[in-house]
């Protein structure tokens, strides 16, 4: 239930935005989740439904997963992240702290561990819509 902590982070942030923007009600929140983080969408949706209250009571949360793409900083080769190539323990470690991928994943072309996450690394709130 590490997803619960991520859901709380969304709720805290959206609540603050609603206060700052003086919204009476938040109608919709768009959240993007990086594939690298391997968030269980059903679990995070369940947690958000349990946690939303007040101005967020009727909020619709739309969550979309963004494919993770990595690029080697040494040879510039780019490739897609594939969870199935990792053993379960490593996949779980990356799920908690995606940057530890640098301990386990190598560039398939040159073997370097100096790569960047081009996209699909983490979760972010793309937009918050509401009624003033």
């Amino acid at each position: 239930m590490h997803e619960w902590a991520l859901a709380e982070a969304i709720i805290y942030t959206v609540t603050e935005i609603a206060e700052r923007e003086q919204l009476k009600e938040v109608s919709r929140v768009d959240v993007k989740v990086g594939e690298l983080q391997q968030v269980d969408l059903e679990t995070i949706k369940f947690a958000l439904a349990q946690l939303k209250r007040g101005k967020l009571k009727n909020t619709e949360f739309r969550i979309e997963t963004i494919k993770a793409r990595l690029k080697c900083r040494i040879c510039e080769h780019a490739w897609n992240f594939d969870k199935n190539e990792l053993d379960q323990e490593v996949a779980e470690a990356i799920h908690f702290v995606p940057e530890v991928a640098h301990s386990f994943i190598k560039c398939p072309k040159c073997g370097a561990q100096d790569f960047e996450f081009v996209e699909g690394r983490r979760m972010y709130i793309e937009s918050v819509s509401g009624v003033r």
Binding site: L6, A9, I17
Partner: peptide, 9 residues
Amino acid sequence: MLDPRIKAI
């Protein structure tokens, strides 16, 4: 793009 981790901390 808002990072929800900051408020969580």
